[in-house]
């Protein structure tokens, strides 16, 4: 019986241990990004993007991130649901958009924003995103 209890504890732990802080962080990063965009604060918005995602935006737009990020046309919206698995997360917004996050050297950062499910089964096809790394 002690072995069964230890296994159960491990399973519960794997599903949830240490995740509460991560969930709060991932949610806060997403909300900070959207609020900053709404206020026109490109510097703060860009700080919430992962280095690869920032580089992709600069590449695509040919101007600094803080100037380019406003042209994505994203609207502020509340985080309606957050899913977090190991070092990856997805925030579903009330307006139907989704954002993807990953945990990097600087903590949780957005790897893709303005995402909508592509045609077909969402589990099989990657979302189509306004910006991704």
């Amino acid at each position: 019986m002690p072995r069964s209890l230890a296994l159960l504890a491990l399973a519960v732990c794997m599903a949830g241990c240490g995740r509460a802080g991560d969930r709060d962080d991932a949610r806060a990063v997403t909300e900070r990004f959207l609020t900053a965009l709404d206020r026109g604060d490109g510097t703060t918005a860009c700080a919430q993007l992962s280095p690869d995602t920032r580089a992709a935006l600069v590449d695509e737009e040919g101007k600094p991130c803080r100037e380019a990020v406003g042209s994505l046309g994203l609207q502020a919206s509340a985080v309606a649901r957050l899913q977090l698995y190991v070092t990856n997360a997805k925030a579903d917004l009330a307006n139907g958009d989704s954002a993807f996050l990953s945990q990097g050297a600087q903590g949780w950062r957005l790897s893709a924003v303005g995402c909508r499910p592509a045609r077909g089964k969402p589990a099989d096809a990657p979302y189509e995103c306004a910006l991704e790394a």
Binding site: L7, V86, A89, S102, P126
Partner: peptide, 25 residues
């Protein structure tokens, strides 16, 4: 019990990969 735990843990690991590739969990 261990097959059940494989399913629970396997789903979480699988979903981490899914989200890493911008796919649904």
């Amino acid at each position: 019990a261990s097959w059940g735990l494989q399913a629970v843990a396997g789903r979480i690991a699988y979903n981490a990969d899914q989200l890493d590739h911008q796919q649904a969990a």
